[in-house]
């Protein structure tokens, strides 16, 4: 499953970068995120409650930031597993200054397995897109209001 898109945040790039690296901010913006903490190795551990169609479940996730080039670009590796199966993926996010704001461009590939794959196949792409939109909207609000 490919996921691609852009989002504009009306805030300076340095601030957006800083907030993207802050687990507390991410936790508040990520739909269904109950907890996010930085692990000793620098990765983020997350607990999520997510529902896709009929499959609702708790997931333990791990987000790793790779090759950070502040404040321009980073790669993100995500792995989550739970009652509904697993999700794993990698994405590249780049931040560009754009008319006083910041344009975030993301592009990634995700793989799902288990129940979410067999039951949620038709819904997963739109569900993922919806979650991402929700994340960026909430994230933008938080960054812009600070």
């Amino acid at each position: 499953m490919k996921l691609e898109g852009t989002h504009t945040i009306l805030a300076p790039r340095d601030l957006v970068w800083q907030r993207l690296m802050n687990p507390q901010v991410l936790a508040r913006a990520l739909p269904g995120c109950e907890k996010m903490e930085q692990n000793a190795d620098g990765s983020f551990g997350a607990e999520l409650k997510v529902g896709i169609g009929a499959i609702k479940g708790a997931y333990q996730g791990r987000v790793e930031i790779l090759d950070p080039a502040p404040p321009e670009r980073f790669r993100m590796k995500v792995e989550a597993k739970g009652t509904g199966g697993f999700v794993k993926g990698e994405a590249t996010l780049s931040l560009a200054e754009n008319a006083g704001g910041t344009l975030i461009t993301y592009s990634g590939e995700a793989q799902v397995g288990g129940l979410i794959a067999s039951v949620g196949q038709r819904l997963i792409q739109s569900a993922a897109r919806q979650s991402l939109n929700q994340f960026f909207q909430t994230f933008a609000k938080q960054v812009q209001s600070s």
Binding site: A117, S118, R122
Partner: peptide
């Protein structure tokens, strides 16, 4: 099955 071996027709909707 998809190329990773996930069954994508796992319900009678599919």
């Amino acid at each position: 099955y998809d190329e990773n071996g996930q069954l994508v027709t796992g319900t009678l909707m599919d």
